[in-house]
Amino acid sequence: MKSDGRRVILGIESSCDETAAAVVVEGRRVLSSVVASQIDLHRRFGGVVPEIASRAHIEAVNTVIAQAMKNAAVGPEQIDAIAVTHEPGLIGSLLVGLMAAKTLAWAWSRPLIGVNHVYAHAYAAALDAEPIDYPAVALVCSGGHTALYRCDSPTRLKLLGATIDDAAGEAFDKVASILGLGYPGGPEIDSLAKGADAGAVRFPRTLLHGQSLDFSFSGLKTAVLYHVRGVPGRSNKYPGSAPATLTESQIADVAASFQAAAVDVLRIKLRRAAVKIGARSLVLGGGVAANSALRQAITELAEKLKCSLRLPPLKYCLDNAAMIAGLAWHYLDQGVTANLELDALATVKR
């Protein structure tokens, strides 16, 4: 522990696309956050490539850690603990960060802390900001996750609902593909939708039964497909290969209408959850939290519910290691650390 008592944690993240490292003080003050994005690689190949991803993580991990330490102007002697994402994610990718973290924890004789990647997204809004006012409802949505949590503290989370088919970010990507747009689809749809008519097409809002807090985006994706390519059996357009018959402004209207439907569903579920638990804060996390229509809808929702609104800046919405190091401080504070046998876990659900 430093003489001033402020504990410094080095965080490492390698669960999916990004190799990242960060140095964070006392859970919130980010001294450095370095992300070696593989997105250019993936754009070239059109998706997450685990074989390449795990190799790229291996190539990047040492550099990224060294850069994070350098940017934070700290040496090993100033680091109080090593935190690492150990679940959920691709095993091959997780293992790279995990091995690096274990090695440093062993070599520097520091505690090791295993962090859940999705829990860290639900905490990211506290970075470089005020502590989150609990209880909170956190909506984490990205390409691989769409989940609602009740949070009673940074480390006490209860899953309230999750997608039963496609994740929200996946729906954005697949709809972008249906519309002939690029990858990743989220930002493309977001920017096309600006100025377009979100009421042009009334796509379904799948809310599931009763007061369910689960999500389903598969039907919405299929509705967009039918709209663009025609309903099978009723027209000869299907299976068209591309939305060649739509004008650019029609494509933008479809993108805006799809986005409106997806955002409506996310907003409605978040509202249900917030009312149910009497949330004092609404927290967003994950890549889809960068979507401008979602941010606007949740901003209005928070005003109506008189909740505190916690929207992380873009750099903390996307995968990063600052959220790992930040959340880990709370575990360290409670004396919860791992040993060197900490395992990587692929899927943690329900």
Binding site: C16, A162, I164, D165, E170, K349
Partner: peptide, 16 residues
Amino acid sequence: ADQRMVSSPTFVLVQE
């Protein structure tokens, strides 16, 4: 038992 566990593995690549 819980059918909700079955979701698209497009991003996560594999689910068990």
